[in-house]
Amino acid sequence: MPIDAAKATSAEPRTTELAWDHKDVQLYHLGIGAGAPTPEKPHPATDPDELRYTLESVLHVLPGFATVAGGGMALAGGLSAPGIDVDLAAVLHGGQTVTVHRALPVRGRATQTSTVPAVYDKGKAAVIVLRSEVADGDGPLWTCDTQIFVRGEGGFGGERGPSARLELPERAPDLTTERLVREDQALLYRLSGDWNPLHADPEFAALAGFDRPILHGLCSYGVTLKAVVDTALGGDVARVRSYTTRFAGVVFPGETLRIRVWRDAPEEGRLQVSVTSADRDDAPVLADTVIAYS
């Protein structure tokens, strides 16, 4: 069987050395739409607030960068863990959480420690849970919890795992904004390290059941975080403490993301977010999405 859950969860932690500099951060920001027009900023390329994402002398780092630092080794580490051997065409990103322990530096060297806390049996699919903890010489930087959904690998008799869903507030959102996903967005985003051909090769996408390549889930994740930081948190990336989501549906390059935000618990520093495709009757994209902030 390609997935040996017991072997995966009992394996010794794996360590990987990560390194990045301002070019990696800038590339990531460009890959999630930095510098592109938005409803709030129709001409943003040289806007001082936008330059914080693109100009090295004033660069701030969005916490979403944690998912690609060092070339996206967190996800790669999960797929190469002992006891796991899966077909990339069957793999989808199920969910993601980034918890920030302090502001991410523009350049750095750090050690990533990866484990597989659980492998869940969903019947027709398996969910691999990967935890990556990253620290440098000054202590912990961030923790990534990743859920990898693998079609056709369930039925091995394991635990089904949690299935709770977060209901959206019944009132209107406190703010709504939209972000266009450019036709070449996936081609640019993949340069940050996720080389899965599902996001670039039409023939491979067809093998996975799609009529054309789809956008990386983590690109939608990053686009959403930037939009929320810019519109709800005053553009201050350092206010983000954690960001969690479930990938509820695909996005095709060229579509527009509709992002709704509720100040669910302002006294606790909590935003609830819903992301849908404005081009497909608000088809779900990100669900169960919460940003905790200071």
Rank of each mutant, 00 (worst) to 15 (best):
D281H: 15
P105G: 06
Q272Y: 02
V106R: 09
A283E: 14
H101E: 15
P213H: 09
K41S: 08
P197V: 08
L92A: 07
A265T: 01
F252D: 01
S10G: 11
R280E: 12
A118S: 11
A125T: 05
R263P: 00
A232P: 00
I128E: 10
P266V: 10
T245R: 02
P117D: 01
D288W: 11
H101P: 02
D201I: 08
P266A: 11
A19M: 01
P82D: 07
R212F: 06
D236P: 00
G31W: 13
V251G: 07
D136T: 04
T231L: 02
T46K: 08
G161I: 14
T67A: 12
A76P: 02
S10R: 12
A206M: 02
V181S: 10
V116M: 03
K41A: 14
L180A: 07
H93R: 08
G123P: 13
P140D: 02
G217R: 01
V229H: 04
L141R: 05
H60S: 10
R179A: 10
I32E: 00
T113V: 13
G154Q: 06
Q272H: 13
T146N: 14
A283N: 01
D211L: 10
L141I: 05
G269F: 14
L104K: 04
H29I: 03
H101L: 12
T38K: 00
D194E: 07
S80K: 15
Q96M: 08
P117C: 02
G154A: 10
A287F: 10
L55V: 06
V100G: 07
A66C: 14
E170N: 12
V86D: 11
G234S: 02
E56N: 08
T113S: 12
A66H: 12
T115C: 04
R263Y: 05
V228R: 07
D288G: 08
